[in-house]
Design a protein around this nucleic acid. Sequence first.
DNA 1: CCGTATCCGAACCGATACTG
DNA 2: CAGTATCGGTTCGGATACGG
Lengths: 127, 127
Amino acid sequence: MTQTVPAPLPADFFPADCPVQSVPVLGSRKWAWRIVRCLEGGPRRFSELRVPLAGITAKVLAESLRSMEQDGAVVRTEYAENPPRVEYALTPLGRTLLGPMDAVCEWSRENLGSLLAARLEYERAER
Amino acid sequence: MTQTVPAPLPADFFPADCPVQSVPVLGSRKWAWRIVRCLEGGPRRFSELRVPLAGITAKVLAESLRSMEQDGAVVRTEYAENPPRVEYALTPLGRTLLGPMDAVCEWSRENLGSLLAARLEYERAER
DNA sequence: CCGTATCCGAACCGATACTG
DNA sequence: CAGTATCGGTTCGGATACGG
């Protein structure tokens, strides 16, 4: 019975090079998860993406796609046509995100109700 | 051969009540994931958490814990002692987060190298 | 010991207008 | 069609000082 108390957490509990703090590609970007989902079925054009991503502005969509491209999750292909056509697609690396994303989505499906209930309960207990 | 082109994405591709956009509990909070990890082994005191979460300020830690408490992922227990002692622990709901978190951590372990390489390559191609 | 109050700067997001 | 430029609002995190 020497282990009734958990060991204290060391200062280097998280290694300096451990950026699991937040998924880099999905970052804190509001739209990144949904963009990945939209590209799951194949390449999409810029304006085509704006339909399901209701409310996104061109600026934010362009910014998001650019940052995902920097991270190697998305490829941008420009066709020399007129009017111009640009397609975005997931790279193999981008596709590897689908696994963890599915895990999170399943978590939401199973536990979101409890979470929302907890919020209401907290609010109720406040007063 | 009628299906060579993927179907266009409908405007209601994402249901209005689908908050998978971002994991509610972990939100966009910078520290939430790490806090869950710190609590995985059992209850921890406020000041005890500040050790592994090197650099976090009291304000941000308190805010983060409060929001996770609101979402029902964490319980706060205050002991009427002097000096005061407060302990934080994962709730059963909070523990369900460990599954998806593991999936994401494994992704990082396997693919973070590729991602960092892609960033460097992108930067190099810029010039 | 366990926070809160206040102020500040950075990051992100959105609206609008304009361009190759 | 596929963006960029500019501006403004909000949200978040960090620093510092103080309170129960």
